[in-house]
Design a binder for these strands. Structure first.
Lengths: 120, 120
DNA sequence: TCAACATATGTTCATCCGTTCATATGTTAT
DNA sequence: ATAACATATGAACGGATGAACATATGTTGA
């Protein structure tokens, strides 16, 4: 009996080997699934959701967003960076002001899908 | 130099009052946006994503999932509870085994939306 | 150039969350 | 009923994360 270096593997659970094998063969790369989780993680915060929903109505500068959310400038800026890195919003500078907008309709679609799931 | 004691509300930022007002009027209830974030939060973990993707291929018992993910039974069970509470998976008992499956096509759609966003 | 403003960023702190371990619950067969 | 197995659940530990604060960067106009 080899010392199961991985205790998890040592578990003796009910398993349908054939099914497990088949499923394993069809799974996407772990890397891809990890990326997928990362995207959803970005949507998974109420502050960021509120920002995105505000941007559905109109492009907005940081100050606008801060006032709409009743939140500090720093907090908003930090969250915008996350949305930016995730390619969910785009931005342009206009004088002293930076104006943010939804990056594409994909974002809208994802939000709608989630919304539909809620209404049931 | 005045001591700039600035609480969030006291910030004097660039703001387009008219736009802010209009956007505020169109926003959904905070409650709704909070719920929306909660849903996405559930998708925002790689373990749960891997579980969901496995379930796309076939319904599976807890042991199967644990083996597919190479994760402990307890960890899987905990995550399944979260997916269950979010109505993303359904389950039935069959003898000693509990078999999980995706709850509906909504889940598939949401996953696909996210996947599309990655491929660009 | 400097002053004033808008935004970005680094740090800290408190909270949240996923995994593990231990144990409880539920099911079947003897 | 009891043993053996499958899953669920409670507690705790450690890592992740968002907000606040302080400060830096970037922009405009004098």
């Amino acid at each position: 009996m080899a010392k199961s270096k991985n205790e998890n593997m040592g578990d003796f659970l009910a398993v349908h080997q054939d099914v497990v094998k088949r499923v394993l063969e069809t799974q996407p790369e772990d890397e891809v699934l990890y990326e997928l989780a990362e995207i959803f993680k970005v949507f998974g915060d109420s502050t960021r959701i509120r920002i995105l929903y505000a941007l559905i109505e109109s492009e907005l500068c940081v100050g606008d967003i801060a006032q709409i959310l009743n939140l500090g400038q720093s907090a908003v800026s930090h969250q915008l960076k996350i949305l930016k890195d995730a390619k969910l919003v785009k931005f342009r500078r206009e004088g002293k002001v930076v104006i943010y907008a939804l990056d594409d309709d994909h974002v809208r679609n994802i939000l709608n899908m989630g919304m539909e799931h809620i209404e049931e």
